[in-house]
Amino acid sequence: MTHASGGDGTIVFTPQWTAQAQFAGYYVAEARGFYREAGVDVRIEHPSATQPAMSRLRAGECHATTLQLCQALEIVDGNIPLVNILQTSMNNAMVIVSARGKDPLTQRGARVGIWSVGFGQLAICMSNKDHLDYQWVRFAQNVNLFVSGALDATLAMSYNEYYQLLQAGIEITDKNVYRFCDHGYNVQEDGVYMTRQYYEQHRDQARRFAQASRKGWEWAAEHPDEALDIVMQYVNRDRIATNRMLQRLMLADVLRLQVDRESGRREFRLRPDMVQLANRLMHEGQMLSREVTYEELTDNAISK
């Protein structure tokens, strides 16, 4: 592991995808100067199709990234210790959308699209557990395969691909959607992770970075329209092929997912029970070789 190329104070943060409202809080924190106020120097660099976020983290080209919990478990299981410095998502956003209005649970052996970058662990668990024997087709980044009719179903994020499918004229009803969060798979997703090594060397910065990011999220929750404007600035700068409508929908859903189901509040914390659940599911699905504990992912100082 090489150290980041940036100066000691700069945290290079690479969100797991290209610029979109999924990372609104960070944009807000940057644009509104929360990071500056907090005294951290943050540089947001997005991944490219050829350079995914995780490889950047592994290569030390960034110091922090966002990961889904299951992803993090896998990575930690793969011997790269990670620390969750900020958990934003409190709910699971993954869904299966079937073609031709079919119920996903009825499509045994169907060709189901899955992200090639490493999301969808729970789907694999579910396919195995329920003996659906999905044929997973790994796609790079969009819904074109599904839209072209090459797939029987596809995984989608409720805040992202779901709306892309709608925008592509796909008819989605309750009949052809399977929501993981409603079927006992409500495992949190997005959180900000650093390598343990980096974290332990930059605890204070990490903490400030996390707090400022959280502040950014809270501000975005209270000012969604202005947050959207900020998001569109980043989107347009990077010439991302999306539009304000999708971003608005995405922002709304991401903010919704940050509200814990049980407490009804934005908790911004990793839930031990969800960690345990993910562990159990993935272990059953033979995706983890060992249990990755809650303590492994956290540092008590942050998660308080």
Binding site: A49, T50, S55, R111, V137, F139, A140, S148, A150
Partner: peptide, 19 residues
């Protein structure tokens, strides 16, 4: 092709086979 360009997951690679 490279690690940075894993063409196996690209539309153009998958579609003719899938369809």
């Amino acid at each position: 092709g490279s690690d940075n360009y894993q063409y196996f997951f690209m539309d153009w690679y998958l579609m003719p086979t899938l369809l």
